[in-house]
């Protein structure tokens, strides 16, 4: 599978993260999103006229929506990441995939405004982003009250991966994560998963490995 990728894009990171967690190898094709604006150039517009990344190619499959890419990778390699096949879990996953686009439109737009000076009503974006975070916090709190660590069931699904990156990077858009204890512990559970990978701004849990030891002098 070939991913048209930008290292600072949370949507591209969703795809890299799920692929790493389920052991799918991606061929990365770096895109000069900023400052080059390569995603709006002729080569990429031919693949995605919307002028957006990520883009995923696999033989005759061409996908331009990150949620669809998560479904595709999980279906191919790790169907347990799609829930148990029940109406309840399947629909709840779809619910969070749709919700994740609100996170992109609010937290993500606030981040683009603050980091890349994109135009926008920053107060309105931050306020709408905070509202989305409050909804996520309430849902995760209810899960915790039922002893469930993740958004849909007691193991991670693509719902968690779809929502995680824009939430984790909300402070880049001037939106604090400090008021949300359940979001804090949920992020921690995702970062503790085996084969978790980082992106700039989202680091691994250093404490999961022993403290580094200084090599002996002259070694």
């Amino acid at each position: 599978m070939k991913l048209y990728d930008y290292v600072l894009s949370p949507s591209c990171y969703k795809i890299r993260l799920l692929a790493a967690l389920v052991g799918v190898e991606l061929t990365l094709r770096p895109v000069d999103f900023h400052p080059g604006g390569e995603h709006r150039g002729p080569e990429l517009l031919a693949l995605n006229p919307a002028g957006a990344i990520p883009i995923l190619e696999d033989d005759d499959v061409l996908l331009t929506e990150s949620s669809a890419m998560l479904v595709y990778i999980a279906s191919r390699a790790a169907p347990e990441w799609l829930g148990d096949g029940s109406a309840r879990e399947g629909a709840r996953i779809q619910q969070w995939l749709s919700f994740s686009h609100r996170l992109t439109a609010t937290l993500g737009s606030a981040r683009l405004h603050e980091m890349l000076l994109r135009p926008g009503d920053i107060r309105g974006l931050q306020s709408a982003g905070k509202q989305a975070l409050r909804e996520l916090e309430a849902a995760l709190t209810e899960q915790r009250l039922s002893d469930v660590e993740f958004l849909v069931c007691d193991h991670p699904t693509i719902a968690d991966i779809a929502c995680f990156p824009y939430v984790a990077l909300a402070p880049d858009g001037g939106i604090s994560l400090e008021p949300y204890p359940s979001i804090r512990l949920w992020q921690r559970a995702i970062r503790a998963l085996q084969h978790f990978i980082e992106m700039p701004g989202i680091h691994r849990l250093h404490e999961l490995r022993p403290a580094p030891v200084r090599p002996e002098q002259g070694a």
């Binding site: 204890p181 804090r184 512990l185 404490e207």
Partner: peptide, 14 residues
């Protein structure tokens, strides 16, 4: 300042 369950072992929070 917080609920005990919101600061589990081996974690830090504001």
């Amino acid at each position: 300042v917080a609920l005990s369950v919101d600061v589990p072992a081996a974690t830090v929070s504001p």
